[in-house]
Write a protein that binds this DNA or RNA. Structure first.
Ligand SMILES: [Zn+2]
Ligand SMILES: [Zn+2]
Ligand SMILES: [Zn+2]
Ligand SMILES: [Zn+2]
Lengths: 159, 159
DNA sequence: CTCGTCAATGTTATAATATAACGCGTCAAG
DNA sequence: CTTGACGCGTTATATTATAACATTGACGAG
């Protein structure tokens, strides 16, 4: 008789509600499937690969297949709710997507990838962005976006 | 009766000779296979994928298989002769590998990826590297390396 | 010489990541 | 009612990368 109930932690459900609100603002829909995938990404301590996501998704959705998850990831990335970490071929939730609405084309973002614990921290460093913009301009290059992924050992792991 | 002759342009053969010299200096060998793969990468105007490389390699080496090319690429990357462009899952020759010998762990490098013509330019921008090092330090992050890939339209394409 | 060892490559199979192409149901505009 | 956009299911395939084991040839120890 009950609805499906909370699938994710209360904090994450809040973020999902916020994401739904932002979707509505833009005339798109955070469908149950999209909400579930986003919830799974946000629930992961580490970047999660498309197929790991697919495995978890299948526990609730029988018919899920690769296109299911890739399509949803495309949608979530286009809205700035999720980023891809290229070095890992894996996906992370955007921590600022719930706070700020200018992320259509994605903000200028950098990742700190800990090779020890596997965690990834997202930053938005203006100095890096400026240095990149400057270098691009000096090369007569019309920059559209930049991937910045810094690998090393995070504060927690380095002790 | 003649030897195989020049497989690549004279400029590239010169760079291959230089690479062989650098290998010898470090106690490793630029075998014919490795030399040929490096030549193919250097001959490509654009980043080249492992399987495109494999196709070209097979014209001369019958038995070539994926491990053949991936092993050689690992070798060439470890020596700094070749870089991987993560956004493209493709490989480029390092333009400075022939001039400078400190590339064992790879120099701090950035790529300008033109989404129009597909060409990739390698840069070595100290300001970007410094901004990244600074941001990492502020996060208590012990940086090992960084991937910086800037996408846009190159000077030639933007006209 | 002959054996052991190592680097390099060959060889077969498979894993991991990603997309193409088509179909089907819903829903709202016209 | 028809049409078209959207969301998703479904099947098949493409693309990228690695695991695991075999073979070859060079070279030094004995
Ligand atoms: Zn973000
Ligand atoms: Zn860590
Ligand atoms: Zn380089
Ligand atoms: Zn261009």
């Amino acid at each position: 008789m009950s609805e499906t109930g909370l699938t994710f932690s209360p904090e994450i459900e809040l973020r999902l509600d916020e994401a739904a609100r932002l979707c509505a603002e833009r005339g798109v829909t955070l469908t149950p499937l999209r909400r579930e995938v986003l919830g799974l990404v946000l629930s992961s301590e580490q970047p999660i690969g498309a197929y790991a996501l697919l495995d978890r998704l299948r526990r609730r959705r029988r018919g899920a297949a690769p296109p299911t998850v890739y399509r949803v990831l495309d949608f979530l990335r286009a809205l700035g709710f999720v980023h891809k970490v290229e070095r890992l071929n894996a996906f992370v939730g955007c921590p600022s997507a719930s706070n700020y609405v200018g992320h259509d084309q994605g903000h200028a973002v950098q990742f700190l990838i800990c090779t020890r614990c596997g965690r990834v921290t997202e930053t938005e460093d203006d100095a890096i962005a400026a240095a990149i913009a400057d270098a691009a301009e000096r090369h007569g290059f019309r920059q559209m976006r930049a991937t910045v992924e810094i690998e090393g050992i995070c504060r927690a792991c380095v002790g």
